[in-house]
Simulated scan of single mutants.
Amino acid sequence: MLFMAQANAQSYEEGRDYVALDTPVRTASDTGIEVAEVFWYGCPHCYAFKPLIENWAETIPDDVNYVKIPAALGASWEPHAKAFYALKAMGELDKVHDALFDALAGERRPLNSGEALADFVAQHGVDGEAFLENYNSFGVNARMQQAQAKVRGARVTGTPTVLVNGKYRVTASMAGSHEAVLDVVDYLVEKERQAQ
Rank of each mutant, 00 (worst) to 15 (best):
G42C: 08
D62T: 06
A83R: 09
K50Y: 01
D94I: 09
A48R: 15
P70Q: 12
F101N: 02
A81P: 03
A72H: 06
A89E: 14
K68E: 13
F84Q: 04
H45W: 05
T59Q: 12
K68T: 11
V96S: 10
T59E: 12
A105I: 01
V67L: 11
L104H: 06
F101E: 02
Y85P: 07
W77L: 06
I60L: 14
E54W: 06
E78H: 05
I60R: 14
K50T: 05
I53A: 04
A72Q: 09
I69N: 01
W77P: 02
L93S: 03
Y85S: 10
L73N: 08
S76F: 13
P61D: 15
G91A: 12
V96E: 08
A81E: 08
F49A: 07
F101I: 11
V96A: 13
E54V: 04
A89N: 12
Y66I: 15
A105N: 05
A71G: 14
Y66L: 15
N65D: 14
G74P: 00
N55D: 15
P51D: 04
E54T: 10
A105D: 03
H97G: 10
V96H: 05
P44E: 10
F49T: 08
V64I: 14
L93V: 05
M90Q: 13
V96L: 13
Y66K: 08
A75E: 13
H45S: 07
I69Y: 14
F49V: 07
A86H: 06
Y66W: 14
Y47T: 07
F101Q: 02
N65A: 13
D98H: 11
G74R: 14
L73K: 04
A81K: 03
C43S: 06
V64M: 06
H45K: 03
A75I: 03
A83P: 03
L93K: 10
A89Q: 13
K88C: 00
P70F: 11
P79H: 13
E58G: 09
T59V: 07
Y85W: 14
L73M: 09
F84L: 02
H45T: 06
G91W: 09
S76T: 06
A105Y: 01
A72Y: 12
G74F: 00
A86E: 05
E92R: 13
L100M: 15
K68Y: 00
A86F: 08
D63E: 15
P44D: 11
L73C: 12
A105G: 05
A99G: 03
L104N: 06
A48D: 14
I53Q: 04
A48C: 01
K50F: 00
A48G: 03
G74L: 01
Y66D: 00
E78W: 02
K88F: 07
